[in-house]
């Protein structure tokens, strides 16, 4: 599997785009009345690096056969992906204003048949690594340089199907397949490690035959770039898994490191505090 070119992008751009993800997550949640702040904020740097520097996609040709595929096991964080797709031009920015409204294409979980740039629908946790296995097998069969990247949550590691897919990815030697686990420590009932322990994840993924890369700070742009770049562009005959340790709610002080903002809503006073902190923040 050939690796693909990496765009030369200034770190400040990634920082700006991560801010865009956080700001828009707050704005769209305000339209809706409820949203997954914590999960969107924890993946902001990862998604910004993927879409603005590493992945090969074409906004004017969303179904381009050789595009890299991005799927979300943690589909509930799609609210952070939609602003990126709009920013890149996959669909008009004013679609965002319709978020969650009656009949909108944009809801809490992504729909591939409705939203250009969404490579697979999700919502049922644990499915999309399997889908990505199929995508990677298909890319290899077709001789396409496309890579399949699946972003998962740490709570998702509890799903048995993840380990079915992990076996398949290793068995078929899919080095065009990358799994990223956003380990933000937040689930509906608290820290997934308290709810049902999945750690030690490094040993598990390694034992399953994946090239396992531990990213100790998924908000440090240099470290995150390095981990993702190694996973995507240093194929070694195995699928790669990036264990990204992140902070739930990163960027807004009263949300950081708490599971309570996995899902929530900000009133008028707090929303201004959140915007101010996001704008002032210098993450990464």
């Amino acid at each position: 599997m050939p690796s693909r070119a990496v765009r030369n992008v200034d770190r400040s751009l990634i920082r700006e785009k991560a801010k865009l993800i956080r700001r828009e997550t707050v704005r769209l949640t305000d339209i809706c009345g409820s949203g997954h702040y914590g999960s969107s904020f924890s993946m902001a740097e990862i998604v910004a690096l993927l879409y603005y520097q590493l992945l090969h996609v074409k906004a004017d040709e969303p179904r381009w056969a050789d595009r890299d595929r991005f799927t979300m096991g943690k589909g509930h964080a799609a609210i952070g992906l939609f602003p990126v797709l709009a920013d890149l031009g996959f669909f008009p920015a004013d679609w965002l204003d319709t978020y969650s409204r009656m009949g909108s294409f944009l809801g809490d979980h992504p729909e591939m048949k409705k939203v250009p740039g969404i490579d697979f629908s999700s919502g049922s946790i644990g499915h999309n690594l399997s889908v990505s296995v199929g995508m990677a097998l298909g890319a290899r069969l077709k001789g396409s340089p496309a890579r399949a990247v699946c972003l998962m949550g740490d709570g998702e590691m509890n799903e048995g199907q993840i380990w079915e897919a992990a076996q398949a990815g290793a068995h078929y030697g899919l080095d065009n397949l990358v799994g990223i686990v956003d380990i933000n420590g937040a689930g509906s009932d608290g820290d997934p490690q308290q709810t049902l322990r999945s750690e030690p994840l490094k040993e598990k993924w390694e034992a399953f035959g994946w090239n396992t890369i531990v990213l100790r700070d998924g908000h440090d742009i240099d470290l995150t770039f390095d981990a993702l770049n190694r996973a995507l562009n240093a194929p070694d005959g195995r699928p790669a898994c990036v264990l990204a340790y992140t902070v739930a709610g990163k960027g807004v002080s009263f949300m950081e490191g708490t599971w309570q903002w996995h899902l929530g809503f900000l009133g008028p006073k707090d929303i201004e505090r959140a915007y101010a902190e996001i704008d002032a923040g210098e993450i990464g």
Partner: peptide
């Protein structure tokens, strides 16, 4: 053999992977 995927006793993964293969223009 290149177009035959035995996913082992992991049916849910097989169904998801078949869906992924279909998105790549194949007929699973």
């Amino acid at each position: 053999p290149d177009r035959y995927f035995n996913f082992g006793i992991a049916e849910r993964n097989m169904i998801g992977a078949a869906a992924g293969l279909a998105t790549m223009g194949l007929t699973p």
